[in-house]
Amino acid sequence: MAERGKTAIDRERCKGCGLCAAFCPRGIISLAPEINSRGYHPAVVTDPGACTGCARCARMCPDVVIMVERVEAA
């Protein structure tokens, strides 16, 4: 059974440093064009379906704003 990931990024606490995007092996994280209430461009998952749940983004996130779950795909 295949597994896939579910990544949730807290946009309001994100400082837009981009480390998650740089280390995502699927290249599915980028910085949003709009800004959050603190003036940062928060990271967003552009293709949630392609996430494997490897959590490299979360591991590199200096602000602990990324939650990762791994779900079994039907």
């Binding site: 400082k15 981009g18 749940g53 591991r59 996130c61 200096p62 990762v68």
Partner: peptide, 24 residues
């Protein structure tokens, strides 16, 4: 859950600059 905020951290957001690895 592959990744969640540890209990040994408070809910306070870090004051560190964007990308500073103190947070890691």
């Amino acid at each position: 859950t592959m990744f969640a905020r540890p209990e040994a951290l408070t809910a306070n957001p870090f004051h560190y600059c964007p990308g500073c690895t103190h947070g890691v």
